[in-house]
Amino acid sequence: MTAAAFTFTPDADFVDRALDAELRRDSESVDRKLRTMLAALDDSLAGISDAREELHTLYTAPGTDTAGDVSAHDQDIATH
């Protein structure tokens, strides 16, 4: 038995231009929404990072950062 391979190349004359335009609009709309969501996540991550640094500042006495304390600084506050 042999398997026949078929390929399909749409002819430009038969492309539904209205459907193509609608799909492009939908795709652009989704891209905009995803970019907005990504920006919000980036802002949230920056806020979390700032809050962690502030908490580390509050819980670390000034002048006690030694080589041994650096690894502790990178751990979550909850583990201390």
Rank of each mutant, 00 (worst) to 15 (best):
V15H: 03
P62Y: 04
D65L: 09
A67N: 06
A3H: 09
A39I: 03
H56S: 04
T7E: 15
A67P: 08
L55M: 12
A12S: 14
A51G: 00
T60C: 02
R25C: 07
R35N: 11
I48R: 05
T60G: 01
R24T: 15
L58P: 01
S27V: 00
L41R: 10
F8W: 09
I77A: 04
T36S: 15
P62T: 05
A21K: 13
M1K: 10
I48E: 02
A67V: 14
R17G: 06
V30W: 09
L58K: 11
L45V: 04
A3C: 06
G63I: 05
S49R: 15
K33E: 15
S27W: 05
R25F: 10
A51S: 02
D65I: 09
T79V: 14
D43W: 05
R52M: 07
L34N: 08
A51Y: 01
R25N: 13
A40E: 06
G68Q: 12
H56D: 06
L55G: 01
G63D: 00
R25S: 14
R52A: 03
T60A: 06
F6G: 06
T79M: 07
L45I: 10
E54I: 07
E28Y: 11
L34C: 06
T57E: 04
G47K: 10
F8Y: 14
D20V: 13
A12N: 13
T57H: 05
H80K: 08
R32P: 07
L23F: 11
D69V: 12
I48F: 04
Q75T: 07
V70Q: 08
E53A: 12
V70Y: 05
A46G: 00
H73W: 08
R52W: 01
A21S: 14
L45F: 10
K33A: 15
T79R: 04
R17D: 03
P62N: 10
E54D: 10
L58C: 07
T9C: 08
R52Q: 03
R24M: 11
S29E: 15
T64Y: 00
A51C: 02
V70T: 02
D74E: 09
H80N: 06
D65R: 06
S29Q: 15
G68I: 01
A78E: 10
S27F: 13
L41E: 07
V70M: 08
E53Y: 08
M37T: 12
G63W: 00
T9P: 00
G47A: 12
V30P: 03
E22P: 00
F14K: 14
R52K: 10
D31I: 12
H80W: 14
H80Y: 10
Q75A: 13
D65F: 01
M37S: 13
A5G: 08
S49E: 09
A21C: 09
A4H: 11
A12P: 05
S44I: 07
A5R: 14
E54K: 13
D42M: 01
P62L: 03
S71I: 10
L38F: 10
A18M: 00
A5D: 09
G63Q: 02
A3L: 11
R25P: 04
P10H: 05
D69G: 11
T36P: 04
L23Y: 13
F14T: 14
V70P: 03
T57V: 07
S27H: 09
P62M: 05
D11Q: 03
A39V: 03
Q75H: 07
M1Q: 12
T79A: 11
